[in-house]
């Protein structure tokens, strides 16, 4: 078991090193693709960290993502960059705590609706603030980063996310989570502090999502609410995690990579029909593989006669 784990770690480290070296070998465009892909892998993994085991479908991804990006836009000229990132993470964490305290008792569809509303609420609040308090709309981020610099930061964050996710899975919390996912009431009776665990996961997951937004912000130079609070980010994250399987460590990655490449291919080959094909695809995923690709493969394997 330990041998296996250490082998897996060695392999992961090798893959990581290879990925980190990639921008030196490939053209800028493919660095951009890797960057986008790493961003979504991180988002989907962070999303699944909370939403997988608790089965709380969150559409608040873009609320945190946007807050991260906006923090960088506001602070990038006044603070050194590492501090800006720290601030972004801190703001995301505080926001997740407040939101978590007030809403994690909601369940099912109410939570989904709330989180969707949250994204809109944050966007409107930022707009209101900019209009009435600061009198600016649209902020500039002039940081000397090229695609590959942003990509390296995202890659580091992705690696950290996997480590955290893996660590949680092996800890006592992971065990409590399994119980929680199966039946919340039973878990609570068995002595699991359900609310605290949910809150903890929500905060970790949201902080990571905030950081993804913060790291990606310098890529757009100009930031305004309609640019960073784009609901598509929430939907893409969700569908990627669901495709791969939100209950597994590698599930979101298995979903994010092929979907991202597919989107890329679609937007190159069918620029005029992208949205239609995307919609059809979503429907297909929900109908054919509601539990995700990995679960589907497992079922097929078990089901096939040997």
């Amino acid at each position: 078991m330990t041998m296996k784990t250490s082998h897996a770690f060695l392999l992961a480290a090798a893959v990581l090193a290879l990925l980190a070296a990639a921008p030196l070998l490939i053209p800028d465009y493919w660095t951009g693709v890797l960057l986008g892909m790493t961003g979504y892998v991180t988002l989907a993994t962070a999303w699944a960290m909370f939403s997988g085991p608790t089965r709380y479908v969150s559409l608040a991804t873009v609320a945190f993502f946007g807050v991260g990006a906006y923090t960088v836009a506001v602070l990038n000229e006044t603070l050194p960059y590492p501090l800006v990132l720290l601030c972004a993470g801190g703001i995301g964490m505080v926001m997740a705590l407040i939101v978590g305290f007030s809403t994690l008792r909601l369940a099912g569809v109410y939570f989904v609706i709330f989180t969707f509303g949250l994204a809109e609420l944050v966007r409107q609040t930022v707009s209101w603030w900019e209009v009435n308090i600061t009198y600016t709309m649209g902020r500039y981020v002039f940081l000397p980063f090229e695609g590959r610099h942003i990509y390296w930061q995202l890659l580091a964050l992705a690696a950290a996310t996997f480590l955290i996710s893996w660590g949680i899975g092996r800890s006592r919390i992971g065990l409590a989570l399994k119980a929680l996912g199966d039946d919340e009431t039973v878990a609570a009776h068995a002595g699991v502090d359900v609310t605290r665990i949910k809150l903890l996961l929500f905060v970790i997951s949201s902080t990571i999502i905030t950081l993804v937004g913060a790291i990606q912000a310098p890529r757009w130079t100009y930031i305004e609410p309609s640019i960073v609070f784009n609901p598509t980010v929430s939907f893409m994250t969700l569908i990627m995690a669901l495709l791969g399987g939100a209950m597994r460590l590698w599930g979101p990655l298995v979903g994010a990579i092929p979907l991202f490449l597919l989107f890329e291919w679609l937007s190159v080959s069918f620029p005029d029909h992208f949205s239609i094909i995307l919609g059809l695809l979503f429907i297909l995923i929900v109908f054919v593989m509601p539990e995700g690709v990995l679960a589907k493969i497992e079922t097929l394997r078990k089901g096939s006669p040997k």
Partner: peptide
């Protein structure tokens, strides 16, 4: 290309 009104798509499209 269609940027789908997303800044990230603008950036990648130009790349």
């Amino acid at each position: 290309y269609d940027d789908r009104s997303s800044a990230e798509e603008v950036v990648r499209g130009i790349e």
